[in-house]
Each structure stands twice: as C-alpha cells, then as structure tokens.
Design a protein around this nucleic acid. Structure first.
Lengths: 252, 252
DNA sequence: AAAAAATACTTAAATATTCAATCTTTTGCA
DNA sequence: TGCAAAAGATTGAATATTTAAGTATTTTTT
C-alpha cells in the first residue's frame, strides 16, 4: 500500500500542465479551508494539488464547461456563484443545482463516461480552480478520506436529485417555486434587508423550479398577493416562511 | 495503513447479527459473480462478507425497506426484480429505478442521513441479501476498488437521475413513455416472442414514466395506433424502435 | 448617449394532464 | 370454487400549464 502510494506521487509529477483555451489564468490567492478538495486531503498531498491545479478567471455568464464536452478534469469554485444546468431542445433549460465557494464541479463526469452530462456557467465574475482528471483520480487513490467524502456527497446529491424528480412529477408548480426559494435562501442566505442573497433572473428561477417563465411569473404574483413573499426589483424576500414551507409539503 | 485495516477486521468480527423482522431468512445459494459486492471485493474479504450477510426471501409486492425508515444496512438483489420508489401525498408514486440480480439497494442511505430516501418493493418473489451498515462501511474502508466502483455507480446514477429530471421538466409524456419502454427493454431484455421481459402493471409503468395512469394509457393507445408498439395482454412489444427512439430526442 | 440586445411582463388561445365516475377484469381468501 | 374486494381499463369534463405573440423595461454595447 505504501509502495503504491509512493508510485502514484512519482507518476503524478509527470502529468503535463494543459493550457485551457478561452479562460484566463488567474494568480489570485484563494481560501484553502473552504474548498471541498483541500478540506478532505491529507496534508502531505496538498503540495501536489497546489502544483497541479490551475486557477481561471471567469466572467459573468461565461461557460465553464458544456454538456457534451469531453471530460478533461474537475473544477472547484473559488469565488462567484455557478449554475449547473442541462438543456432540452436547445431552448428549454433545467438548472440542476447552484454551486458556490468551495464546491466541486464536474464530478458527474467521473468514470467511463467521455462527456459532461451537464453544463456549468458562472452567474457572476469569479475564479474557478481546475484539476486534470488523471491527477484527480490519483488524488482519490491516495486520499481515502476524500474518496469517502465524495461518496457521501454523491449520495446526498442523489437523494436531492431524486427528491426533485419526484417533485417535478407530482408537486404543483407553486410548491416547486416555494421549494426553489427555500433552497436558495438556505444556500445563499439573506442580505441585510432580508432578501435572498443571490442575483438570479426570473428565467433562471423558472429553470431551477422546472417550469416556464410565465407560470413562475404568475405563481410569484400569487405568492406576493397572498403575502408569502415581498419583492424589491428582482430581489425576493420570504415574508411568511411557514406558509411557504407548507406549500412544499404534501398535505393537499 | 496495514495496522488500520487489521483493526477493522477485528472490530468487524464483533458486530452482532441482527434479526430482521417480517422477513424470512433464506438458505438458498446465490451467484457470487453477479453481485456488485462480490465482484468488487478483494478475495481476502469475501469470507467476512459471507459471515456477515444474511439472505431473506421476499414475496411479490413485499416491502424491503420504506422511505423514512432508519437506515440500518445495505441490500443486494439476489433474485427477482425490485422497484425503487418514492411517494408524494400518499397517493402519487414515482418509480426511480428498477433493480435486478446483483444490484445494490439502499446505498442512497449512506452518510450522515438517518433514513432511507426511497422505498424498495419486490416485484416478484425473490431473495435479497442484507448487510449491516457498520460492516458495509468497514468493507468500503478495506476495499478501495469497491469504493471506487461505488463512486462510479453513484456518478452514473446521478447522471441518469438528472437526465430524468430534465425529461420530467421538459419532455412531453409521449417521449417519457417511449424512453421508459426503451430503458425497460435494455434492462430486462425481450421474451422469445419479442415482448419486454418484465411483468409490470400499467400503474407501475405510469409511475416510472412520471405521469398518471390515464395519460399513459392514452399515450400507449396512440403508440399502438401509430404502429410503434404491439400489445398482448399486459405485455408490450416495440414494433418500431427507431421511431420510438426519435420520440425521446429533442427534435421538436 | 443612442442603439441594440436581452430580459421582463402581460394576455389569450391551445394543449396536455389530471380528476371523477363508470365499467371490466383480476386477485385473494373463505 | 365462488364471491367479494381490489385493481385495472376506459371515457368525458375540468383544470393546469405551456405556447404564442406582443409590449415594456432594463441592461449592455457601440
């Protein structure tokens, strides 16, 4: 086992640094503690990670990787929020999840699969870290804890995904919008004025709730009239969390 | 590392055998090669598995574990087909996937979570193997290969789940039914007469496609009229695979 | 600062999906 | 085996959701 690990380190040192096109390399510092990768790595391996990772600046709306692209590596969000999404029919989009600081990105591409099953797009200007897939797999092999954490992350994401599947199949749009807002509030928190702390277009909110813009628009109006929500421009504040939560529960 | 593994083995030996209620222990032999667990275990660990696993006979329609139940362990399908499903509102069900021989069951419960996020129900009489969660986690720790395979399985299931999410959000029912039939054909194959080789009620088919019984009924009628399908009682045969496949693609 | 593009909002019509109710078949059990 | 109960099939009506189409507003670009 020790021998094996040592081999891997030597092997990894030889991985060439691949230049990514269309993304500018960044030299900014980043917060080691917050990242999924660093948090779960053995200390001895961190220098190898630092030697192999690359930082990229992304602009607002910039595509980080695209559904159907060959998988070359794994990304980590350093700063800025990112949407993970999937298309249908070139027009209709479903936002699968949002990723913020420290989150891993592109891990759905793990395994025999050649292509990313989803796209990732920056919602704001920010920085992402990139790690070659070969090096990432080596990292998994020498970091049992990381592998186990990733396993748990997958299980959690699978639970979440299947819950959303069920919601899309059986929950009315109103409930789905309510749940989307609650998720956003939990993930991004509130501004000082009590609004959900993420800049999101109505179209993106609709894509996250899995409905059309029009329907979501109508539902939000209803929710405002029923005083469960308050609006201020694009910002949304949850006025009645209890009632909103009830909409997501199957009490009929 | 060696020391750690050794400790684990000793530790694991002390896990008590827990009797499961409501399921009859089976003494049947099973096929080691076909099971996800045995296929990915180091040979040295197999005896420990054999000592810790328990077999249970299940009847048709019998619940193996239920959404919301505390997670106590992991199951493997030995024989018989199993549906993995999730409820909404006590009436509406979504079948997340089907599991056949060798498949792992209940792994969504891995991690901090206390309860199964889905239910598992036998579609036919069969045998399932059960492994205590504590022993399963120990098994993961000493079988890097198994852990990695499980990671890949999770990635694959996540891809599948998110594809289905997108379909539920944006694909018409007709396409979803078509896709459901194609998946069933791929997973269970055909009988000698060319029918999809699984006994499935229309209700279950509807739950798998994520639509109501009535809609699926109507859609199947259409598909029969359009000569893409042929029926014989409950059995379904795909008469025109190409056209059926086209329904699942986003060509508008 | 003006023009262009993207996003937001609104309404009406079309369509997909579910609800409700009735009839038929299958299944379980005495 | 036969009867009761449950599950499945079938249809028309009600409803939710999307499509379409057009205007208004904001944001970005030049």
């Amino acid at each position: 086992m020790w021998f094996y690990r040592f081999n891997l380190i030597l092997f990894v040192k030889n991985i060439p640094i691949i230049e990514k096109k269309n993304m500018k390399k960044s030299s900014s510092v980043f917060n080691i503690d917050s990242s999924f990768l660093y948090k779960n790595c053995i200390p001895e391996w961190v220098p190898a990670v630092l030697a192999n990772k690359k930082n990229f600046k992304v602009k607002k709306g910039e595509l980080i990787f695209k559904e159907g692209d060959p998988v070359t590596g794994i990304y980590f969000v350093n700063s800025g929020n990112v949407k993970v999404h999937k298309r249908w029919d070139d027009e209709k989009e479903l936002i699968v999840r949002f990723a913020k600081d420290g989150a891993i990105l592109g891990h759905r591409g793990l395994g025999a699969n050649a292509v990313y099953p989803v796209s990732a797009t920056a919602l704001q200007a920010g920085i992402v870290e990139y790690i070659d897939m070969e090096f990432f797999e080596a990292t998994l092999k020498v970091n049992d804890g990381l592998t186990y954490q990733l396993l748990q992350l997958f299980a959690e994401e699978l639970r979440e995904s299947e819950r959303k599947m069920r919601n899309l199949a059986h929950m009315p749009v109103k409930g789905r919008v309510a749940e989307a807002l609650i998720i956003l509030k939990n993930q991004f928190g509130l501004t000082d004025r009590g609004f959900i702390n993420i800049e999101l277009s109505r179209q993106d909110l609709a894509s996250f709730a899995g409905a059309t813009y029009e329907t979501v628009f109508r539902v939000i109006n209803e929710l405002v009239h029923e005083k469960l929500l308050t609006l201020s421009g694009k910002s949304i504040s949850i006025a009645n969390p209890d009632k909103l939560l009830k909409l997501t529960q199957n009490i009929a």
